[in-house]
């Protein structure tokens, strides 16, 4: 056991300890649930990952920034922590459980620290162990930060995807397009709906555009305003807008709220709306067989 000067500050002491015991700490950590479950292929891989984390901690301690999650030393392990976090959350662990798994890394390191500094004064040992605890706490914070930002990035990505997926424009007939709206309409979505619908009106030379709100759970004054805007914009381009799929509950809500949809053509179902548009286009639907069984 190499001698070390008792005069060093606890932070530097911890740094020296981390550098000296790098291999042993990594070996111990590799047996902890966090590393064991993430790096299932080989133990060596887990040990390597553990070493990377130890190096990062030593670097942070070297910079005297044990309490700073933004310390430069953490940047290199951030990606690895994100990968570990993603693996653990795929396994069904909550962020809290992940956090306690990270906390479980502290006792093995602390045991090693106590064994390593058996020559030192109890005073220094205590301070070193506190410093190590703070350092591990900061690591936990970094891991949590990474996990949260990963989650946020995922949500942002999915929101964009949802915008694309949720607004298909369907051509129902020559000159008639329809947008079935599913889910809650907010400002961003209604903007996308408006743009895609108007572009479809140009592309398809549509005289009629049907907005089907069967899948819209509730209509409040904001949603109604978005609908009116879309209808007005379509009208400015020379297409007539019909709003269909107004369920009885929604009709009641609209009346209760006192919303004025007076300028908007409304129909109960998409079929009714299509029928209206076809009639306006001058197309009539007749049964091929006058006495056919399918007559309604």
């Amino acid at each position: 056991m190499p001698e070390h000067e008792a005069g060093g500050t606890p932070t530097l002491e911890v740094r020296d300890f981390l550098r000296r015991r790098r291999e042993q700490i990594a070996q111990r950590w590799a047996d902890e649930p966090l590393f064991r479950t993430v790096f299932t292929v080989s133990r060596d891989e887990a040990v390597e990952a553990g070493k990377a984390v130890v190096d990062a901690l030593a670097q942070v301690a070297d910079a005297h920034r044990v309490e700073d999650p933004d310390a430069a030393g953490f940047t290199e392990v951030r990606e690895q922590l994100a990968r570990m976090g993603a693996t653990r959350s795929r396994a069904g662990l909550s962020t809290t459980q992940m956090s306690s798994e990270l906390a479980a890394l502290l006792p093995p390191a602390e045991n090693l620290l106590v064994a390593d500094l058996d020559q030192a004064s109890p005073e220094l040992l205590r301070e070193c162990s506190v410093t190590l605890g703070v350092l591990m706490g900061t690591l936990r914070l970094v891991a949590m930060q990474t996990a949260l930002s990963e989650g946020q990035a995922l949500i942002d990505r999915q929101r964009l995807q949802l915008l694309e997926v949720a607004t298909p424009v369907i051509k129902l007939w020559d000159g008639i397009v329809a947008v079935p709206l599913i889910g809650t309409l907010d400002s961003a979505r209604s903007q996308v709906v408006m743009e895609t619908l108007l572009n479809a009106v140009v592309d398809q030379h549509a005289r009629f555009a049907i907005l089907d709100i069967t899948g819209v759970p509730t209509v409040d004054s904001l949603v109604a305003q978005h609908l009116m805007k879309t209808v007005a914009a379509a009208r400015l381009m020379g297409a007539e807008c019909v709003v269909s799929g107004i369920r009885p509950a929604i009709a009641q809500t609209i009346v209760h709220l006192g919303l004025d949809l007076g300028t908007v053509k409304t129909r109960a179902s998409l079929a009714d709306a299509l029928g209206y548009c076809l009639h306006e286009l001058g197309a009539n639907i007749v049964n091929a067989v006058p006495d056919g069984a399918g007559r309604r």
């Binding site: 408006m194 743009e195 108007l198 572009n199 009106v201 140009v202 030379h205 549509a206 005289r207 805007k229 007005a232 914009a233 379509a234 009208r235 400015l236 381009m237 020379g238 297409a239 300028t263």
Partner: peptide
């Protein structure tokens, strides 16, 4: 009859609150 208004123009007008209710419009 005002004909051939572009989508972007229509959106701008609506956002400005100018729905031009009395105006006849056509696609082409």
């Amino acid at each position: 009859v005002v004909a051939g208004m572009r989508p972007a123009v229509a959106i701008t007008l609506v956002e400005l609150g100018l729905t031009l209710p009395g105006l006849r419009t056509a696609l082409t």
